[in-house]
Design a protein around this nucleic acid. Structure first.
Lengths: 122, 122
DNA sequence: CTGGCATGATTACACCTGTAGTCGATAGGA
DNA sequence: TCCTATCGACTACAGGTGTAATCATGCCAG
C-alpha cells in the first residue's frame, strides 16, 4: 500500500480521479496532451499503478475498467505533508509567509484565506 | 543551470545552507544521522551536486571546501511552486483549505497566519 | 626518504522512471 | 470458420537515484 506515485503516474491518476471507471484507451485519450504519450506508455503506467495498488481494475469482457484505489485527498495530503515537513519544519505558516514574500498571493487569495480561517475558529 | 536536486542531495544541501564552507568530512558528520550514510555516500552526493552546479568548491590544499551555489530560498520557491501547481491549480487557498480540513492547523497556526495576512494588507 | 592515511575521482550496481515496442490471446466481422 | 484488430502482458532501454567500494595521488609522520 501507498507506494510512491511518480510524476508520470500522477498524470494518469488525475484522469481517473476526474472520471472513472475508464478503459486504458479512454485514459490515453484524456491524459494531458502536452505529455505527448503513445497509448503504449499509458498502458505501462496503468500497469505500474496496478502493481502499486494505486488503481484497481474490473474485468469487462477482455478489457479492464480502471478506477482509482487511492483517493485524491489521500495523495494530496501525503504530498503536501512531505513538502511542508521537508522544507518548512512541518509548519504551514512559513510556507504562507514565503509565498507572501514572493508576491505569490493576490488580494483575493488573502481575503479568501482570511474567511477560511475565520470559519475554522468557530 | 538548476537541474533538479534529488531527495538525498537535498539532505546534503540543508547541511551547507546551515553552515558553509565545509569539507566533505564535515558534511558527512553533520548530515541527518537518520539517513545512516557512509562517508562515501556523502562524497558521491557532493560530486553530483557539483556537477549540477548546485554547490561550488574552493580548493583548500588538497581538499575542497564546499558551499551552496543555489540559495535555499530559490530551491524552496521552486519546490513549493511545483507542488501547488501540480496539486492545487497554482493557488494557495486550496492548500490551506485542505490542511485546515485535515486538522493540520493548530490554533496557533491560525492566529499566526491571520496576523501575517493582516500585515500583508497594509 | 618512504609508507600509510586521507581525499577526491572513478566505478559499481540495483532499482525507479519515462518512454515505448513486441507478443500472445481473443472477440468480432467476413 | 478464419482472419484481423485489439487488449493486456512482457520486454526493452537509457537516464536518474540511493548507496557504496575501489583507485590514484599526494601529504605527513617516522
Amino acid at each position: 500500500m501507498a507506494e510512491r506515485i511518480s510524476d508520470a503516474e500522477h498524470a494518469v491518476m488525475e484522469v481517473l480521479w476526474d472520471d472513472s471507471p475508464l478503459t486504458a484507451q479512454d485514459v490515453a485519450e484524456r491524459v494531458d496532451p502536452a505529455r505527448g504519450w503513445s497509448a503504449a506508455t499509458v498502458k505501462t503506467l496503468l500497469g505500474r499503478l496496478l502493481a502499486k495498488e494505486a488503481v484497481r481494475h474490473d474485468v469487462d469482457g477482455r478489457r479492464y475498467l480502471y478506477s482509482p484505489a487511492v483517493q485524491r485527498e489521500e495523495y494530496v495530503e501525503g504530498e503536501s505533508r512531505r513538502l511542508i515537513d521537508r522544507l518548512f519544519g512541518g509548519r504551514l505558516t512559513p510556507l504562507v509567509a514565503h509565498l507572501a514574500e514572493r508576491d505569490a498571493l493576490t488580494e483575493q487569495d488573502i481575503t479568501e484565506i482570511e474567511a477560511l480561517l475565520r470559519e475554522l475558529k468557530q
